[in-house]
């Protein structure tokens, strides 16, 4: 479970995120959406323990990220939009390294089906420089899922994937959720989010605009503003696309 309470991140005088609170239960997939500069990536980076929040608390599977960072990080995985890999390690070496860091004792048994699922099993001896962007993305996912995280954060996970890759990624996300992971996805591809998310959190200029289940939010905006899909909800909620901001 992911529980966020009063998350605030300041960069000097600039408020990147202010007093954000929400929870994601096991099995739920939360879509974190907002215009550019809304604070989505900052939020995810705070949740992953990459940058410290200025105020607020973050609980990952019951572990306070500030007080027990090691236990909390053992339960999470964060996937950035740009695959971040060590250029001098091969695919197989990345997995061995990740397994040691996360102490995944039977990693070889877990890695094989993961690599096959992601269709990079035949690339074990390749360096990242020899892989396409999509392949790199898949390797990052394989490394991230190796320790069976309970809290997973995706920042634009579909960037660079081909249609089949996108389909597989969606299936993979849904399967992880069914297996009990709490998932947060940040993306601008609203129609794709509609297919995988159970919940939505819309942010703008570092503040929460609305959150709730996808069905609930769609119903509210449909009743009040005639919005029929997440894209229209987004425009109404954020005031983007020439539509004035309208909160329910």
């Amino acid at each position: 479970m992911i529980a966020v309470e009063g998350l605030t991140k300041l960069y000097g005088d600039f408020v990147a995120m202010s007093e954000l609170s929400f929870t994601v239960q096991p099995g739920q997939v939360l879509g974190l959406v907002g215009p550019n500069g809304a604070g989505k990536t900052t939020t995810l980076r705070c949740l992953a323990g990459i940058i410290p929040p200025t105020r607020g608390t973050i609980q990952i599977c019951g572990h306070d990220l500030a007080r027990a960072p090691v236990a909390a990080k053992q339960e999470l995985a964060f996937f950035t939009d740009e695959p971040r890999l060590f250029e001098y390690l091969t695919v197989a070496q990345h997995l061995a390294f990740t397994a040691r860091i996360y102490q995944v004792r039977d990693y070889e048994r877990l890695a094989r089906p993961l690599l096959e699922e992601l269709e990079i099993a035949d690339k074990a001896d390749k360096l990242p420089g020899e892989l396409s962007r999509g392949m790199k993305q898949k390797l990052v996912i394989a490394c991230g899922l190796l320790h069976s995280p309970k809290a997973i954060f995706f920042d634009e996970p579909l960037t660079g994937l081909d249609p089949l890759g996108i389909r597989r990624m969606k299936d993979s996300i849904l399967r992880r959720a069914r297996e009990g992971a709490a998932i947060i996805i940040s993306s601008h591809l609203l129609h794709l989010l509609e297919e995988v998310c159970s919940h939505v959190l819309i942010v703008k200029k570092g503040r929460k605009v609305i959150d709730g289940t996808l069905a609930e939010i769609r119903r509210i905006y449909a009743e009040q503003h005639g919005a029929t899909n997440l894209e229209e909800v987004f425009f109404h909620a954020t005031g983007e696309g020439g539509v004035p901001p309208q909160n329910p």
């Binding site: 001098y88 061995a96 040691r100 860091i101 102490q103 070889e108 001896d125 420089g129």
Partner: peptide, 19 residues
């Protein structure tokens, strides 16, 4: 990236032990 060469690992890294 493209000009990198694979180098042999100095030893076999097991999944358990000191991180």
């Amino acid at each position: 990236e493209g000009t990198r060469k694979k180098s042999r690992p100095p030893f076999q890294l097991g999944p358990s032990g000191r991180p």
